[in-house]
Design a protein around this nucleic acid. Structure first.
Lengths: 111, 111
DNA sequence: GACGTTATCGTGTATTGCAAGGTATGGCAA
DNA sequence: TTGCCATACCTTGCAATACACGATAACGTC
């Protein structure tokens, strides 16, 4: 893995998790659709990041999942936000904003 | 490690590295001083994150280091930015900004 | 010389992103 | 019905790295 990729990889750590919560908070979504959307935004590199992540979120009780038929193709597993998930999302916002601002300040350097 | 801490830990990944470059870009600094400043901003948890990081930056040729006497106490190892370091810092800004904006957009939900 | 302070650094563990590959289902065309 | 492709989910293994914990070293003070 070259340097540039590693930088992005590390930056994404811990961020995607909450972007997923935010997205399904707006309405349920299934795995591959989530993966594609996040890939388009540069937030994940592939599905192999997403599936283990969804499993962790489920284990943590932040999302529920449910199989649903599809008009075309295989059944899909749809995820929805639990109350704990909504709470975690709120908590994340309070964490993200100060961190983001600390980075911006440091990069901009008012010394 | 509890959940809350893990969230912060993951968020910090890949961010501190460039905050360090930004700080020493303003003038050389030594390890412990860097660590204290970054701890105050919530960007690292302890020196044990910083020293291995500085070693990596040095290996990558992004910083140089030099021992200097101190008025009081042990000698300190001062770090300075190399040209490659300055370049990496510029490159990071181009990576950070879109990512930060993608996160903000996703959290704020214009869907 | 014992002790506290300042400073740098090493070891071990846990987390996790991702590449690569595996499995299952449905649609479609020859 | 056979073959093939797209869709969809998931697993394995590796590599990167944050951090707790602790070691080591130099200096000053009593």
């Amino acid at each position: 893995m070259d340097t540039e990729e590693r930088v992005l990889t590390n930056l994404r750590k811990g961020i995607v998790e909450f972007c997923v919560l935010a997205i399904i908070g707006e309405g349920s979504a299934y795995g591959l659709a989530l993966a594609r959307r996040l890939e388009a935004d540069g937030l994940v590199a592939s599905e192999s990041t997403l599936y283990p992540l969804m499993a962790r979120l489920r284990m943590a009780g932040l999302v529920d999942s449910e199989w649903q038929e599809s008009d075309a193709g295989r059944p899909r597993k749809y995820y929805t936000l639990t109350d704990a998930g909504r709470e975690a999302l709120r908590a994340f916002q309070s964490t993200w904003e100060p961190l983001r601002d600390a980075v911006d300040r440091t990069l901009r350097r008012p010394s």
